[in-house]
Structures are given as C-alpha cells and as structure tokens.
Lab assay of single mutants.
Amino acid sequence: MAAGGDHGSPDSYRSPLASRYASPEMCFVFSDRYKFRTWRQLWLWLAEAEQTLGLPITDEQIQEMKSNLENIDFKMAAEEEKRLRHDVMAHVHTFGHCCPKAAGIIHLGATSCYVGDNTDLIILRNALDLLLPKLARVISRLADFAKERASLPTLGFTHFQPAQLTTVGKRCCLWIQDLCMDLQNLKRVRDDLRFRGVKGTTGTQASFLQLFEGDDHKVEQLDKMVTEKAGFKRAFIITGQTYTRKVDIEVLSVLASLGASVHKICTDIRLLANLKEMEEPFEKQQIGSSAMPYKRNPMRSERCCSLARHLMTLVMDPLQTASVQWFERTLDDSANRRICLAEAFLTADTILNTLQNISEGLVVYPKVIERRIRQELPFMATENIIMAMVKAGGSRQDCHEKIRVLSQQAASVVKQEGGDNDLIERIQVDAYFSPIHSQLDHLLDPSSFTGRASQQVQRFLEEEVYPLLKPYESVMKVKAELCL
C-alpha cells in the first residue's frame, strides 16, 4: 500500500493539533497551500530580480507567473513527485505547466533550498508574528487579574506546605514575570531571523556568478533584492546548502521555554482548584465526569500541561538535527523538520489560546482563602504575639514557653481530632496574655502579614508589564474561544 493518505478522510490519521486544537490561522501558515504558494512567490521574486539585473526574462513571463501564483494543481504535483521522487522539481514542473512561456526560467540558477529553506524562514517569521500578540493578550488578562487582587491576602506555599502570606495578585505576578520573559525572547528570536537568500547549491553562489558572467556586484544585488522582497532586513552571508540548523534550535528553545512557563502556571491553577481557592472557567453544560456528576475538573489547565510537556520535548529534535548536518548538509534534517517545526508552533498556539481562555474567566473564592488563612495564621502570628507581650512588660522566655504549650495543644486538636485551630481562643482565655487581649485582632490582621506584596504588584505592572504590552494595544480586544 502506498504511503500517505487522504487526510480529510475519517479513515486516515490526522494530527489532533490540526484537527482538534490549533487555530485556523496557525494551521494555514503550515498548510501545503501556504507552503507551495510561497515557493511560487519566491520563484517570481527571483525572476523579477534577475530581470532587473539584466537576464533575458520578459515582462510577459513575469506576468504569467504572477497570474498563476494561486493556480496550484495539487493532484498534478503529487503525481509528479511520485514520478520524480523530488518535491521541488515536482512543483517546478507543475508551475511550468500553467506558465508555459515562463517554464524555462522558473528556478533559474537556484537549488531546492532556495524555495525550501527560504519558505521555512518566512513561515517561522509569520508563525512567530501570530504567537506574539496571543502571548501579549494572556499577559494582559493576567495583569488585569493581578491588579484587581493585588491586596487580597492568601496563604503562600513553599514545598506545598503553608508559608508566609502573600497576595493573590502577587502570586499571579510570578506567572506574568515568566511570560514577559517569554514574550521578550519570542520577539528577540523573531527579529534575529535572517533570510537564507540566493546562495546556490553549497552556499557559494557559483551558479549565479556564472549567470551574471562573473559580476560579483550583481550577485550581491540579486541576494539583497530577493531578501528585501521577502520582507527581511538581512540575509546570511555564510550558508551551506541550507541555512544553519542552529536557527531551528533557537526558535524551538524559546517555544519550549514558553511551554515550561505555561505548565507551571496551569499546575498552580490545578492545585488551587483542589484547594477550592480558584477555578478555571466551567461552562453551564460542561460535564466533569461521566460517573461523578459533582466533579469540576480543571480540564483546560490539564490540557495545557499535557501539550506543554510535548512542546518542551520537541527542542531535542533540532538539537540532534543540527549535530548531524555533515559538511554542507545531509538530508537527516528533512523529514524531522517537516514534523517538529509545525508541531512546535501548533502546540504553542494551542496552549496560548487555551491559557487566554482560562485567564479571561478565572474565578476566585475569597471566603475559602480566608478560612485557610484562619487555619494557619495563628501559628504564624506567634512571633508577633511574643513581641507584643514583651512590649507590655512580659518575659520573652516565659511567653515563648506559654505559646509553645498552647500551640501544641491547638495542633493536637487540628491533627488528632480534625478540629479547627483554636490557638487564639486559648490565648484569649489565658490570664497571662490579658495585657494584649485587646491587640489580638490587630495582630491577626492578614494584611499585616503580606509585606509589600501589593506595592510590588503595582510597581511591576507599571514599570515592566504595561510598557512591554504597549506595541500590542491594537490587538488586545480579541477574545479566545474554545470549541473543545
């Protein structure tokens, strides 16, 4: 049975990233139509530049190519590739079939990587351009969430054990800070992308030097003109047959890092959902379990974690691919890159769409948070109580021993009897502590235990987050809708 299948058929496997999760716009960027249309555009740009620099290419040939950029006979191309065992030459023939007058000058002087690699770089750039505003929107939604809850005390956790208090907004800023680093890295790697350009079979530009009869300047002009037509500021000066596969490492490393950030955020949300302090959106008709109707599973956060793990592992592909590119190139890269580049971007696209949807509907339960604080705060307040007693004339050592005994009794009630923490009640009825009984409410005010959390939130948002989001103001209103 021949390899390949009808990918629109229910009898043929289709990647869930495309069929179930990723956005239509990201799927289109990695589609065959987008790819092969870009090949034709690159052939047109090459012909236009070659004509401008004096090669015998007519206006009629150029116009014929322009008129057929979208006229792609995919069936013919597939048949040609089956016959020739070469995808680029299959599309040269297919393009030439609908451009008979231009057929002889299509791909003039070029090698397969002229269309293959340059198209990949265009796709990487455009895919990054799709991700950047999506990530900015996630940051914006979380920034709104953090600002609104900047002063809401909550129990902090280290080692997932109760620690000092923080605020809900401050905790959210930990998430935002990681995503801001990801946004900066995505922008950097996007701006650092260079075009492969017009380089020939081993990167020496020998074929173009021959076409222009040894004119170095025209060869350099050709490279520059096509690079500018493709919208790049610069091209690699040095290439082998391909652009260095280190570029793929750079791009997928940034995406993998984004995956790590999203995994951490969504894990926190899942843990908070278990504590009943916070939940992701839950639709009115949504079913959490087929057997347990009360369940409210954090399905979206779980999906993000599941896909983020996949995204983090994909960076190993370009690392290994770059390491086995012998001399000017081997074909070890080809099949692998067809999979890992598309999957990385479709996965990143999915987790950003999902995280935006989550961040637009996060639900906080202040009463649950308050109750958990009441359970733990008495123990945390013991040092403040000791200091207040010393100020009232008591002995630190005597007070410490009193607190120690009462704390152990209260802990026994919590752990052995399943009761509430009654340390404060014990202190309130103990005559030894009568000098500070009137101060206990103040000493137990949760806001006095959150330090500068709310001020940190305000400063972080104003100095770091809002300036970073400013270039994306025009796209901030787009909502994230999930079908599944």
Rank of each mutant, 00 (worst) to 15 (best):
H7S: 13
P10G: 10
P16A: 10
A18C: 14
S23Q: 08
V29Q: 07
K35R: 15
Q41N: 14
W45A: 12
E48R: 05
T52N: 11
L53V: 15
L55K: 13
I57W: 04
I57R: 01
I62Y: 06
L69M: 13
F74L: 14
K75M: 12
M76E: 12
A78C: 12
A78I: 09
E79C: 13
E79P: 07
E81C: 00
V88D: 00
H93I: 08
I105P: 04
A110N: 00
C113L: 05
D117Y: 00
I123F: 05
D129K: 14
S140V: 15
L142G: 02
A150E: 10
T158S: 13
P162V: 06
L165W: 00
L174Y: 08
M181S: 11
D191S: 08
D192G: 13
K199R: 05
T201Q: 03
Q205N: 14
D215E: 13
V219S: 06
D223A: 07
V226F: 00
F232C: 04
K233Y: 07
I238P: 05
T242G: 06
D248M: 00
E250G: 14
S253D: 05
A260G: 12
S261E: 04
H263W: 04
N274V: 08
L275V: 10
M278W: 08
E279S: 06
E279V: 06
E279Y: 05
P281K: 05
S289C: 00
Y294C: 01
K295N: 05
K295A: 02
K295T: 01
R296K: 06
M299W: 00
T321W: 04
V324G: 08
F327V: 12
F327E: 07
L331A: 04
S334Y: 03
D349C: 08
T354S: 15
S359T: 11
E360F: 05
E360P: 04
E360R: 03
R372E: 05
I373R: 04
R374C: 06
R374V: 05
Q375L: 07
Q375W: 05
L377H: 03
F379P: 06
M380E: 11
M380L: 09
D398G: 14
C399K: 04
R404H: 06
V405F: 15
L406A: 11
A411D: 04
V414R: 05
K415M: 09
N421H: 07
D422T: 13
D422I: 09
D422G: 08
H442R: 11
P446Y: 04
S447N: 13
S448V: 14
R452D: 01
S454L: 10
Q458D: 15
R459W: 10
F460L: 07
E464H: 05
P471T: 15
Y472N: 13
K477M: 13
E481Y: 11
